[in-house]
Simulated scan of single mutants.
Amino acid sequence: MVKVPGGDLAKYDLSSPLRPELKACHAFLDPGDTLVVPSLDRYGRSLQDLINMVAELRERGIGFTSLHENLDTTTPGGRLVFHVFAALAEFIRELIVIGTNEGLAAARARGRVGGRPTVATEEVIRAARDLLPDPGRSITSIAKLLGVSPGTLYNRIPDLRELRAGARPPPARSPREVAQHERDQSQRHFLYGNYSHPESPVGS
């Protein structure tokens, strides 16, 4: 028995990207039925898609007929055509894989690798290593200055923690040194006011 949901085959656009009608059509079919479509391009979006769906119908005991191509999988000739289609699809997939692998191998031979170009060049890493021992700079500020992420520095500089361990803060001043510094500051302010350069005293 041939079933056409709703009785009007033309209104079912089975090649629609969402294809809710296709799911409804497949659910409507029972074993022993035959699905009839106007043409193969109205049913499948690609050769592989077409082969997969027809194979699924066959597993459920459902035939498939395309009117435009005069293709009927309920006959030996129709099944032979679909076997040829399946072999052709497999052949195309293998050609694509082989071509892709050959292209990647050729690119690697030319010194090119896939993915985004790395930002952390050797020059950036050397600059980071020079800056890491500086106690006045955090890892985040160094990464921002060089245009990379902190994670990049951790990944590209295995001894980063050792370099940071050498970034010791300056020793604390003794009370006598602090007092002397404050006296120097007061004397400078008394002599030169708000001028920051001793070369420019008030009234000169």
Rank of each mutant, 00 (worst) to 15 (best):
K3W: 04
V4T: 15
P5G: 05
P5S: 14
A10P: 08
Y12A: 15
D13V: 03
S15V: 07
P17Q: 12
P17V: 14
P17S: 11
R19A: 15
P20V: 10
K23D: 15
K23C: 12
F28H: 13
L29W: 11
D33G: 06
T34S: 15
L35G: 07
V37W: 03
P38H: 10
S39Y: 01
L40S: 06
L40W: 06
L47M: 14
D49R: 05
I51Y: 03
N52L: 13
N52G: 09
M53P: 03
V54T: 14
E56Y: 08
R60Y: 07
T65H: 09
S66E: 05
L67P: 03
E69A: 06
D72P: 14
T73Q: 13
T74K: 00
P76T: 12
G77W: 03
G77F: 07
G78R: 04
G78A: 10
G78Q: 08
R79L: 07
H83S: 03
H83V: 00
V84R: 02
A86D: 13
A86T: 01
A89Q: 04
R93Q: 11
R93W: 06
E94D: 14
E94T: 01
E94P: 01
V97S: 11
I98N: 03
G99S: 07
T100Y: 00
T100F: 00
N101M: 05
N101G: 02
E102D: 11
G103T: 00
L104R: 00
L104E: 05
L104A: 02
A105N: 05
A106V: 03
A106P: 02
A107H: 00
R108Q: 14
A109K: 12
R110C: 02
V113G: 12
V113C: 08
G114Q: 13
G114C: 09
R116P: 07
T118L: 13
T118F: 04
V119Y: 13
V119K: 15
A120Q: 06
E123R: 14
E123V: 01
R126N: 00
A127M: 03
A128M: 01
R129K: 04
D130N: 01
L131V: 00
L132W: 01
P133A: 00
D134H: 01
P135F: 02
R137W: 05
T140Q: 04
A143Q: 06
K144N: 15
L145Q: 12
G147Q: 02
P150S: 12
P150I: 13
P150A: 13
T152C: 11
L153T: 07
Y154A: 09
N155G: 09
N155D: 14
I157D: 09
I157L: 12
P158Y: 07
L160Y: 10
L160A: 11
L163F: 13
R164M: 11
R164A: 11
A165T: 06
R168H: 15
P170Y: 07
A172L: 11
R173I: 03
P175D: 06
V178K: 05
A179I: 02
A179H: 12
Q180D: 12
E182P: 05
R183H: 10
Q185L: 15
S186V: 12
Q187T: 02
R188S: 14
R188T: 08
H189N: 08
F190W: 13
F190T: 10
L191N: 11
Y192F: 11
N194L: 10
S196M: 03
E199I: 02
S200Y: 13
P201M: 11
P201F: 10
S204H: 06
